[in-house]
Every structure is written in structure tokens, then in C-alpha cells.
Design a protein around this nucleic acid. Structure first.
Length: 378
DNA sequence: AATGCTCGCAACCGCGATTCC
DNA sequence: TGGAATCGCGGTTGCGAGCAT
């Protein structure tokens, strides 16, 4: 079955939008809502296809869009979320509430990706290009890796669901009662049944994480937006297991100590919590309603505990990335010695602060390293 | 001043998912 | 229930601005 074109191409304008077209589109949507995008152009008097109108609205004209330079906080959030979610721009965008997925995608491709490459980090996997250290970790601890991957994927799915709620709630609050602009209630109503259905549909959590629903409310989510910029920085500290500690210690006692001192004290997500959670996940797949509740609650609690990360470490990570242009010899790049096992470790700038940053970043890398190759998440 | 190159961004394209009939 | 219509997402392209030569 061939796919029909989204619109008749003949006679329709393409390319950049003029101010007049913008005005027409804005005026129409403000008055009537967009309704069917396909039908909108004719009604609004535009020589555009509905898809083009939708994109223009969602990427540019929507009133709740923040434009301009990305803040450090936003950059940091993008990098962290990308490490976890990969190129899932819409999911990432929901945690930078006023940015569009398109804008984030562009910013990643034009700025952040290059910065990581310059640091010697693969922007796709978030691994250092010189990767011997991490592969040895993976070989020895595949079970932990699998658990971490599950955690990441559960959390990723939850983020997506929350994201929808955020977007819809904000639209509602912004546009008041103009319900015609909003998706139909049936598409956004989230309840236990939806949640269970979504999870059960994912017969393999590794291979299928599509659109699980969350029971979390927007106000709950809003609690995470604790900084200015409405950005919820995500800290993923799943390495806090006793087994993982052993791994890192094997690789470098000093490194882990730095991480431990800098991070563990601020992280209520204990190894016990993680262990219980992963054991539950292993034992009950596919989950029953009961175990699903247990898992969801545990995952949500754990993730919540980590959304509020150590701001000092976060800032350090950002600095590390942002300063890479002028300060590459202190970066994580293998050339800089930061990631190597050569034993020069301190390389003359080994402050605890820097060590914390490095270990935090290693933390994300470890999480990504642990994902299975067939996972759609990474 | 003219030309070429690079970069950043807006917009397009194609596909999968979802909804509608 | 199945096909068509529509939506949403991620990848890619094209163009304009800025910079270098």
C-alpha cells in the first residue's frame, strides 16, 4: 500500500514563511484552533500544506516557545538527557519546557555534538573514543549492565509519558478553554488501565518502549523544575550499586572515591533500593498489575530522588564541556589523559572538583555502555 | 569588492504510529 | 477489522548570514 502524499503539491507554496503567512496562521489558530491541519490552510487562506502549517506553528509560532541562546543549564540538560535517551528529541524537549524538539536537535547537531567530538567523546554513544576501559567493564558485568539498561529504559518511558502531560497541561493553562487546539481527551487521558496496557504491550521492555502512560500529574512534574529556566536537570546515578562500586574500584580507587565522596552523600537512592528494584524487575517480567505498581513506584521514586542532583557537580560538568574549546588538555579526551589508564591520573590539575566532574560523566557513560545493542533507546 | 567557504537554522521529507471510518 | 487519513518524530536539505581569502 503506497502512502498518499500529505497534501496536493501543485500550487502550494514551499520554503520560508512570510510575515503575512505567519499572521494569517496565527490569527486563524487563535480564533479557531488548528483543528484538522489538513483542512486548515484552505480555511486560513494559506497556500501551504497542512503539514507545513503544523510545523510552522509548533516550531515557531506557538506562544510558549522560548527562543534565543541556550543557557548553561539547558545545555547541560540536553547532554545528560541525550546520554540517556539518544536522539529522542521530543522526549528531551519536554524537559526544556520552552524549547522545541527541532531547536534542540539543531542545537545538538551544530554545537553540542561538535563539542563532544572535540573532547574525544563519541556523541552517539557518549563513550570516549578510546574505549578499552569501558569494554572491560562490560565484559565482566553484563548482568549489572542489563539491569542498568532496564532502569534507563523504564525511566525513559516514564519521561516520555510525563512529557506528554507537561505539554498538554501547559497548552491548556496557556490557552485557557480553547480546547479545539488541544488533542482530544481520549489521547491524553492517563489512567491505570493505560499504564498497564502500555507495559503489557511491551512484551520485551528492551525492544519496545512505545508511549507508556504515566499516572504522574503535571504539578508533580513541576516540582522538578527547581531552577530558573524551567529546566529539570536529570542526574542519572544508577551506578550506586555495591557491585558497580567494585568495578570502579578495580579500575581506580581514587576515581571512585572522588565520585563517591562527591555524589553518594547527596543521593538518597541507595544500593539497596537499586538492588530491590532490579530484582523485582528481573523476577516479574512481564509484570503483573501488582508488580507493575511496585516497579513503577520504585522507579518513579528512584528517578525523582535523582532528578534533583548535586548542582555543584552539574555546574562542573557544564564547565567541563563548555570550556573544552580553550581547555582541552583538561578534558576527558584521551589525548588529555583524563580518561586513560596511564596512571598519570592527576596530571597536575586533579582537584576533587574536577575528579567529581569526571566521575559524574563516567557515570553517564557507564549507563550508556550498559545498553544492549538492540535497544531502541540508545 | 568579489568570490568561496562555513555555519546555523528553518523547513521539508519520509516513515511509523495512531486515529478515524 | 482493515484501509485511509492524520499526526508526530527524526533525519536531511537548502538557504542566508557571516567570515576568510
Amino acid at each position: 500500500m503506497g502512502r498518499s502524499p500529505c497534501c496536493e503539491k501543485v500550487g502550494l507554496k514551499k520554503g520560508p514563511w512570510t510575515p503575512e503567512e505567519d499572521q494569517k496562521l496565527l490569527a486563524y489558530i487563535e480564533e479557531h484552533g488548528h483543528g484538522s491541519w489538513r483542512a486548515l490552510p484552505a480555511k486560513a487562506g494559506l497556500q501551504r500544506c497542512g503539514k507545513s502549517c503544523r510545523l510552522r506553528w509548533s516550531n515557531y509560532l506557538r506562544p510558549d516557545i522560548k527562543r534565543g541562546k541556550f543557557s548553561l543549564q539547558e545545555e547541560q540538560t540536553i547532554i545528560q538527557l541525550h546520554a540517556l535517551l539518544g536522539n529522542r528529541w521530543s522526549a528531551i524537549a519536554t524537559h526544556l519546557s520552552k524549547r522545541t524538539d527541532n531547536e534542540i536537535k539543531n542545537y545538538w547537531n551544530t554545537h553540542l555534538k561538535k563539542r563532544l567530538i572535540k573532547m574525544g567523546i563519541d556523541p552517539v554513544t557518549h563513550k570516549p573514543k578510546n574505549d578499552a576501559l569501558h569494554s572491560s567493564i562490560d565484559n565482566g558485568h553484563s548482568k549489572v549492565a542489563a539491569n542498568l539498561s532496564h532502569m534507563a529504559q523504564w525511566e525513559s518511558a516514564r519521561l516520555e509519558a510525563e512529557a506528554r502531560l507537561v505539554r498538554e497541561s501547559k497548552l491548556r493553562s496557556h490557552l485557557g478553554t480553547s480546547s479545539s487546539i488541544l488533542p482530544s481527551p481520549s489521547s491524553s487521558s492517563l489512567n491505570k488501565h493505560d499504564t498497564v496496557k502500555a507495559w503489557n504491550n511491551g512484551s520485551s521492555v528492551v525492544g519496545d518502549l512505545e508511549s507508556p502512560k504515566s499516572t504522574l500529574s503535571f504539578s508533580e512534574n513541576n516540582n522538578n523544575n527547581h531552577n530558573d529556566n524551567n529546566v529539570a536537570p536529570i542526574m542519572i546515578e544508577f551506578v550506586g550499586t555495591s557491585l558497580e562500586r567494585g568495578i570502579v574500584k578495580e579500575e581506580g580507587e581514587q576515581e571512585w572515591k572522588g565520585y563517591k565522596d562527591g555524589m553518594e552523600n547527596s543521593m538518597p537512592f541507595t544500593s539497596t533500593t537499586f538492588h530491590e528494584l532490579t530484582m523485582t524487575m528481573e523476577a516479574t517480567w512481564p509484570p503483573s498489575d501488582e508488580s507493575l505498581r511496585t516497579i513503577t513506584t520504585a522507579a518513579t521514586t528512584a528517578a525523582r530522588a535523582h532528578v534533583l542532583g548535586d548542582p555543584v557537580v552539574q555546574e562542573g560538568l557544564t564547565d567541563l564541556l563548555l570550556n573544552s574549546n580553550s581547555d582541552e588538555d583538561r578534558s576527558l579526551s584521551p589525548e588529555g589523559g583524563g580518561e586513560s589508564n596511564s596512571g598519570d591520573g592527576g596530571d597536575g590539575c586533579g582537584s576533587d572538583f574536577y575528579e567529581d566532574n569526571k566521575n559524574y560523566w563516567n557515570n553517564i557513560l557507564n549507563l550508556v555502555n550498559s545498553s544492549p545493542t538492540n535497544s531502541p533507546m540508545f
